[in-house]
Nucleic acid binder design. Structure first.
Lengths: 193, 193
DNA sequence: TTCGTTGGCCAACAAGTGTTGACTTCGCCA
DNA sequence: TGGCGAAGTCAACACTTGTTGGCCAACGAA
């Protein structure tokens, strides 16, 4: 997830710096969005020179690509009872959002940046669609049902973590699961209306 | 909605220009978000000099405030049968979003700009909360239920109009009403889970 | 030690930003 | 017709942005 070397790549002396840049970049992108997160500000947070960011990540887009990589780690729908996939999914999303600022960053950037929007489309396609494929009754409706699910889950993230609408922020996680679980459950498995 | 004079304000010779600026500003803000919508680009679209924008609207924030004013024109919930307030609300939102780019602009800006987020909070508070107040069973739950409704409605707008996730774009309005109507209905009126 | 490689800083560039002020042109009323 | 205020143009300002290249120090192998 960070730039720390994995096996077969010898550790570089600059790995600490590279990681510091990524950490700062994630924070800034999450807080400010793409345009207002300046390379200078990120470099300052990481206590290095702006030119280092360019050297290690090429340009601003490269930095964003390196800093924001999302793996939702969605549970395998085959392994859980099909009647509460909704609640499980909502709880899992909630856990992810609560402690990963990368998701907020990506949502902010997706709202203003074409490349960011495409990245979110990719996550939807590669990570949420497969889950829907496992639980949807009619194969033809999989994309529709997955999109409905996305609309509810991303809508929660938008109101709670980005727009910070007070009562959405005040909701307890368990309340959210109780309210949204049945919604997602219906979108994924109920007969079409 | 536009800067056209209403009664008691004498028409100014520059009203056409003022309106052209607002129209161009709405388009740019909706398409690019706050930061990337430059005053120069807006002025060019309106075929006037950038300095005119400053003269008429003070600064960029003032232009945004003047260009983006949202009246959801939410139906009076008292006047409709309480068992299909969900479907009515979803259909109304959909109609508004389909032909008012201002809403897309505000959502884009709300995602990256603090002032934009506060504006959205204000719309929620002043326009959606009152509707919830009319149909919710328990007065104490009004903010919660309104926030849940907002999460689903804004989530739809996000996936369909901003992120443009393909299956969300492909949905027919009637499908959306059929799927989301019961959800909103439940959030507003069903006993809490 | 010596030398190539790597990590890091500094200063600068070109482009683009919001914003300002001086100047010219237009339209209307006396 | 003269004059006055509004409408509009032009050029520039101060600043920030991403990005570049040159320079120096630290390191590790020879």
């Amino acid at each position: 997830m960070t730039g720390t070397p994995t096996k077969n790549t010898r550790p570089r002396r600059s790995d600490a710096t590279r990681d510091a840049i990524l950490v700062a970049a994630r924070e800034r992108f999450a807080a400010d969005g793409y345009e207002r997160a300046t390379i200078r500000a990120i470099a300052k947070d990481a206590s290095i020179d702006p030119s280092m960011v360019m050297r290690y990540y090429g340009n601003k887009e490269g930095l964003f690509a390196a800093a924001v990589s999302v793996d939702l780690r969605l549970p395998d729908a085959g392994g859980l009872s099909p009647q509460d996939v909704g609640a499980v999914l909502v709880r899992h999303f909630l856990d992810m959002w609560e402690d990963d600022e990368v998701l907020t960053a990506l949502l902010r950037v997706g709202a203003t940046n074409q490349a960011g929007a495409e990245r979110m489309q990719g996550i939807f396609r590669d990570q949420l669609l497969p889950v829907a494929r496992q639980v949807c009754p009619d194969p033809e409706q999989i994309p529709t049902r997955a999109a409905l699910t996305a609309s509810q889950l991303l809508g929660l993230a938008l109101t709670r973590y980005v727009l910070r609408i007070p009562p959405a922020v005040a909701l307890h996680p368990e309340e959210i699961v109780a309210w949204l679980g049945p919604t997602v459950q219906r979108y994924l498995t109920a007969p079409s209306p």
